[in-house]
Computed example of a mutant assay.
Amino acid sequence: MEPSIIIADDHPLVLKGLHDFLVEHNYNVLASAKNGKEALALIMAHQPDLAILDIKMPFFTGLQIAEKCKDAEIKTKIVLITFEKDEAIYNTAKSLGIFGYVLKEFALDEIENCIHSVLNNTPYFSPELVEYIEVDSAKEKIKSLTKTEIKVLKLIGETKTAQEIAKELFISARTVEKHKSNIRQKLALDSNSASLYLFAQEVSNYLKNT
């Protein structure tokens, strides 16, 4: 039997697009709601397997609905769809036990993978969102580095050895190793030799402008 789904979005075109897509792909869409109040009432009445909710809706947001469902011990798995790339919202969603977080611009591309993952009890968060938040968080961490440490990190990202970095910055190789140790500590990175290089690659575009 196909899993039961309720969808909610206050944008009529988005709601229709999502509804039509799911129906065309043979999903059991029980009902659609155009605001948070309707969505919550439908979830309470039907207790579907899955509720796909816009985050920002009149009356109740997707997060507020998730919180009310959690308090009422309703087993419906919640998936949020949103344009928001916001770390605070992302963290709140995870703390509420939300199973999915899909960015609207990728919704139709990702929703089937998301549904499949969620129904197998595996949370699904848009890769684009996770990458954005990780990089955004990394940028904040970089602000704790000194100018010399940032230079060392940039050169590590360019695959320079400790000897080459020492020569370029007119310091000793031992001082370079000390800088590397300080950077790892400030960024809470593993002590393995690849961790700094991988981090530098991850934030390479940001480092170029620093």
Rank of each mutant, 00 (worst) to 15 (best):
H179A: 03
I98V: 09
K75V: 09
K143C: 13
E128M: 08
L108T: 07
A173N: 12
D190T: 08
H116L: 14
L13F: 07
K160F: 11
I78C: 08
A200Q: 03
S181C: 10
P3K: 07
I89S: 10
N205A: 10
E131M: 10
P48K: 05
A88C: 10
T122F: 09
A72S: 13
F106A: 08
K208Y: 13
S4P: 12
A162P: 14
F99G: 15
T61E: 03
M44N: 13
I78W: 01
S4H: 04
L13Q: 09
A107G: 09
Y90P: 07
S195N: 03
T146A: 12
I55P: 03
A200E: 07
S144R: 09
V23E: 10
V23R: 11
L145N: 13
M1S: 14
L50S: 06
N209C: 11
D54M: 00
L13S: 15
S126T: 04
E110T: 02
T175N: 15
G157N: 06
A188D: 15
S204W: 02
S204Y: 03
R174T: 14
A88H: 13
K143Y: 09
V14W: 00
L145H: 09
P127E: 04
I98Q: 02
T82C: 01
S193D: 13
I183H: 03
S137Y: 06
V130Y: 06
A166D: 04
I6G: 07
K154P: 10
L187C: 10
N91C: 06
K154H: 11
N120W: 00
L80V: 00
